[in-house]
């Protein structure tokens, strides 16, 4: 392992584990400012995690190990995803490979764990949220896989490190397929992070909840796992967006240097959409994500036509 790949590996693990709550903090702070509020500062998610970590969990009566295990599985899946998604070209393989499809699998696994746990608690709102989540995930996963397929085609590999290298430099400006893939991936970000117009993370209306519903019953340390996992989910999809679909230079050091800027801009973009957009009618959401998948498909066709 060269010193370069070692430092990338350290940044990736430390950044993913420790800095991901900061992404949520920055987004929340930007939202507060946009809404005319002062906000609690970008470090607030850390304070919340500390508070939750110190509290004991409360088990729901009549639940089994399925419910117990879910937060840990979710956190573990997201931890693996952090190892999987390289933050720059020179990232070493950290034992989990770097294949794009594995990422789709890990995201699906964490979703599955939460939904099965919702079944275990048999709380009405948890089940309702879970069923909505699963319905949407059919479309979200299609859009995710197709948009990554666009990038993979352009780069000529499904290895994410290779994808980042293959899309670096001038590719973004000259390949229309990548732009179409980017549009689709933007919708995936919104859906995977549970933000508007798909879901409203600030809502307290139990009837409208999608992602918040299934986690209502968790308390204390379990809730801390889930909140960290949500932050890690932000990290994974935003890093991918920044290093695949946003302009990024060739060369590991340059990519690393530019990453914080891209992530910051993406967080602010999330805050802006969440402030000025209302939540969609729930039955229109699959259509929106479906359009995303169709756009990604169009990207694939464009690329095939272009190279034929």
């Amino acid at each position: 392992m060269t010193s370069q790949s070692a430092s990338v590996a350290v940044t990736q693990i430390a950044g993913g584990l420790a800095l991901s709550p900061l992404l949520i903090g920055v987004t929340q702070q930007a939202k507060a400012r946009l809404q005319g509020r002062r906000g609690a500062g970008p470090l607030q998610p850390y304070r919340e995690l500390r508070r939750l970590w110190g509290k004991s969990g409360v088990d729901v009566e009549g639940t089994t190990f399925v419910y117990r295990l879910a937060p840990v599985i979710v956190a573990a899946a997201m931890g693996a995803a952090i190892l999987l998604v390289p933050i720059a070209t020179g990232a070493p393989r950290l034992g989990v490979g770097q294949d794009a499809l594995v990422l789709a699998g890990l995201l699906a696994l964490s979703r599955l764990a939460v939904c099965i746990a919702a079944w275990d608690t048999s709380n009405g709102f948890a089940l309702q949220g879970a069923s909505r989540d699963l319905t949407l995930s059919v479309f979200v996963e299609a859009a995710l896989v197709l948009s990554l397929a666009v990038a993979a085609l352009v780069a000529g590999t499904t290895d994410l490190s290779g994808v980042i290298a293959g899309t670096a430099g001038g590719h973004l400006w000259t390949t229309p397929a990548l732009a179409l893939g980017g549009v689709a991936f933007a919708l995936v970000i919104v859906a995977e992070t549970g933000r508007q117009p798909v879901d409203n993370p600030d809502t307290h209306l139990e009837l409208t909840m999608i992602y918040e519903g299934p986690v209502l019953e968790y308390a204390g340390r379990d809730q801390a796992y889930l909140q960290w996992a949500l932050a890690a989910r932000h990290w994974v999809v935003l890093v991918l967006a920044a290093q695949v679909f946003l302009p990024h230079p060739v060369g590991t050091w340059w990519q690393l240097a530019l990453l914080p800027v891209s992530l910051g801009l993406l967080c602010i973009a999330l805050a802006v959409t969440e402030t000025v957009l209302a939540k969609m009618r729930i039955l229109l959401v699959p259509r929106l994500i479906g359009v995303g998948a169709a756009v990604a498909l169009l990207g694939i066709v464009t690329w095939l036509v272009e190279t034929a």
Binding site: Q35, T275, L277, A278, K279
Partner: peptide, 9 residues
Amino acid sequence: GVGLAAGTS
């Protein structure tokens, strides 16, 4: 009710 934060504020 529709999550339009700017309008609410």
